[in-house]
Simulated assay, not measured.
Amino acid sequence: MARFELLGTATIPGKGSQLRLLQRNDEFSIKIAGSTGELMNSRLHGSEDALATLACERIEDIPAPRVLIGGLGMGFTLAAALGALGEAAEVTVAELVPEVEQWNLGPLGSAAGYPLKDARARVHIGDVVQLIKDSPASYDAILLDIDNGPEGLTRKENDWLYTAPGIAAAQAALTPDGILAYWSAGQDPAFTERLKRAGFSVQPVTVRAHRPGKGAKHVIWLAW
Score class of each variant (00 low, 15 high):
Gly126Ser: 09
Ile146Lys: 07
Val91His: 00
Ile12Asn: 08
Gln102Met: 11
Gln23Ser: 13
Ala80Tyr: 11
Pro98Asp: 05
Ala112Trp: 06
Val205Thr: 05
Ala173Asp: 09
Ala209Ser: 15
Ala94Pro: 04
Trp183Phe: 08
Leu96Cys: 13
Val91Phe: 01
Asp134His: 12
Phe28Trp: 11
Asp177His: 10
Pro107Phe: 05
Phe4Ala: 12
Gly178Pro: 03
Glu99Ser: 14
Ser17Lys: 14
Gly8Leu: 11
Leu78Gly: 10
Arg155Leu: 13
Tyr182Ile: 07
Thr9Arg: 14
Leu78Ile: 06
Pro212Cys: 01
Ile125Asp: 07
Gly213Ser: 08
Thr36Gln: 14
Gly113Ser: 03
Pro150Gln: 05
Gly34Ile: 10
Arg58His: 10
Thr175Lys: 04
Leu222Ile: 09
Thr11Val: 12
Leu44Pro: 02
Arg3Asn: 13
Asp49Lys: 07
Trp221Phe: 09
Arg120Tyr: 13
Ile142Glu: 03
Ala164Pro: 08
Thr9Asn: 12
Ala181Val: 09
Gly37Val: 08
Ile32Lys: 13
Lys156Ile: 15
Val205Phe: 11
Gln203Met: 15
Ala112Phe: 10
Glu95Tyr: 11
Arg20Ala: 15
Pro150Lys: 09
Leu131Met: 10
Ile125Leu: 15
Pro165Val: 07
Trp221Val: 12
Ser42Ile: 04
Gly186Ala: 15
Gln18Leu: 05
Leu78Thr: 03
Pro150Arg: 02
Gly199Cys: 03
Gly14Glu: 07
Pro176Lys: 00
Glu151Cys: 06
Arg197Glu: 12
Glu101Asn: 10
Val202Tyr: 00
Arg197Phe: 00
Glu27Val: 15
Val129Phe: 10
Glu95Ile: 06
Ala168Gly: 06
Glu27Trp: 01
Asp159Thr: 10
Gly8Asn: 12
Ala79Asn: 03
Ala84Cys: 11
Asp127Met: 11
Arg3Thr: 12
Arg197Ala: 15
Gly106His: 06
Gly73Lys: 03
Pro107Ser: 13
Val123Glu: 08
Lys15Met: 09
Gly149Asp: 10
Phe28Ile: 01
Pro63Leu: 05
Phe4Pro: 08
Ser110Ile: 06
Ala33Gly: 07
Leu222Ala: 10
Ala181Thr: 08
